[in-house]
Amino acid sequence: MAATGEAPSESRHYIVQRVREALAHDGRTNELDLTVSVNGDKVFITGTVPTTERRDAIGVVAREVLPDHEVHNHVTLYETAEPTDGEDLS
């Protein structure tokens, strides 16, 4: 499909699922807990992952699945600081 700026004809419901399936199954990502939304020819991906490599791979995989869409990779990284204090459950 030519990038005309018009909304692609495939229903966005199926586009969302195609991207989610690819992100789950592709060995570069294997991420099941990402939120994918489609608005016209723009795709937005949100969620958190452990590494910058995996975050960047998410954009790569999504662009491979949807070369005619504009992919916005808004995935952020896990925060992994040491805890400051414990919770007393006594």
């Binding site: 807990d33 958190t48 452990p50 896990y78 925060e79 992994t80 600081a81 040491e82 805890p83 204090d85 414990g86 919770e87 007393d88 459950l89 006594s90």
Partner: peptide, 21 residues
Amino acid sequence: VLVRNVAQPVIKHAYNVYTFE
């Protein structure tokens, strides 16, 4: 019974600590 979801994206730390006296 107390329940704690310690999924790392939820606790936003390397781990949480729970203490019992």
